[in-house]
Structures are given as structure tokens and as C-alpha cells.
């Protein structure tokens, strides 16, 4: 491992995604899970409009490839509105810990 490489490793991502109703949330989760090795995905519908829905996508893993995830999401016709939370480095810092520090 090169010096500094570990620091760039993403181990948690929380994304705000806007998507059409179809492909559905199952399809999105499946494709995102398949795009990087050893990751877990959780998706939750936050808001439903007439033609679109907003999804909160939580991706947890050892070395998350953000670019690949972005590509997969775009291929499904969805788009990333914002990156709401990101965790990088050796150890995953949980949201609870984050809240405690603040």
C-alpha cells in the first residue's frame, strides 16, 4: 500500500439521489451493490413526486469506488443530488460518534 492511499479509501457514503420511479429501488440497490466488491447498500425513499422519487442511499464498505457508483446511478437514469456524508481512512467513524463530538 502506498503512503496516503488508505486515507483516500472511502468506507461510508450517504448520497441524496433523485431517480425516476422505474427502475425501482431494488434495481438501484442491486446494481450499486454489484459495482464494487465487499460493500453493503441501504436505500430509503425520502420523497415521492409524480414522476420522480428522492432516495437516501447509504453505502458501507472497505474501499468504495465513488466514480463507479456515480456511473451506475447515471446509467439507471438517476442522478446524485448531493453527497450528504462521507467517511474516509483507516477506521469508520460512526454517525453517533460524529454527533457526540459535535
Amino acid at each position: 500500500m502506498k503512503k496516503g492511499e488508505a486515507m483516500c479509501k472511502i468506507n461510508l457514503l450517504i448520497l441524496d439521489v433523485l431517480k425516476p420511479h422505474k427502475p425501482d429501488i431494488m434495481e438501484l440497490c442491486k446494481d450499486v451493490t454489484e459495482c464494487t466488491k465487499n460493500i453493503s447498500v441501504n436505500a430509503r425513499v425520502v420523497e415521492i413526486d409524480e414522476k420522480t422519487e428522492s432516495i437516501q442511499l447509504i453505502v458501507k464498505g472497505e474501499n468504495i469506488d465513488l466514480e463507479k457508483i456515480k456511473e451506475t446511478i447515471e446509467k439507471l437514469g438517476a442522478s446524485i443530488h448531493s453527497i450528504d456524508e462521507i467517511s474516509m481512512g483507516y477506521e469508520l467513524i460512526s454517525s453517533k460518534e460524529f454527533a457526540r463530538i459535535n
Binding site: P20, D49, E50, T52, L76, G77
Partner: peptide, 9 residues
């Protein structure tokens, strides 16, 4: 509704 082109999706 999506605010973007979807031709390549």
C-alpha cells in the same frame, strides 16, 4: 422532471 438528458441511460 429529472432536469437532465436521459438518452444514454
Amino acid at each position: 422532471a429529472m432536469g437532465k438528458k436521459l438518452a444514454r441511460s
